[in-house]
């Protein structure tokens, strides 16, 4: 029995990656470096990849490190994981 593969973005409560469409060249370096393979190349050449499996993101940042255009790709932890900081206090 032959089977054709399909993909559907599997939604998650967090949005680990976002792309700036004006900066991203669609080179897919991030797609090919991601060890978790959460991205799929866009069907339209030159467009940002599809974050198909956002919930599987391991938040290692390798995609950002591989990106040739600073700011084209942004990694952000879920809001609950933002550590708090305050100005230093002297007693």
């Amino acid at each position: 029995m032959s089977i054709s593969f399909t993909a559907q973005t599997y939604p998650a409560s967090a949005r680990p990656l976002s792309f700036d469409e004006s900066l991203c060249m669609g080179c897919n370096r991030c797609v090919n470096i991601c060890q978790v393979d959460i991205l799929l190349p866009n069907a339209t050449a030159g467009k940002p990849p599809i974050v198909c499996y956002p919930g599987e993101c391991y938040y290692c940042g390798s995609c950002v490190m591989a990106c040739p255009v600073p700011g084209a790709i942004r990694l952000r932890h879920p809001l609950m994981n933002e550590t708090k900081f305050v100005p230093v206090k002297k007693p």
Partner: peptide, 22 residues
């Protein structure tokens, strides 16, 4: 898992290790 998600992210949020405590 620190260069981008911790160092860069906290720096962008304004964390300065000389002025802030975590």
């Amino acid at each position: 898992k620190t260069k981008i998600p911790v160092l860069q992210s906290l720096t962008e949020r304004g964390f300065d290790p000389e002025k802030d405590m975590l």
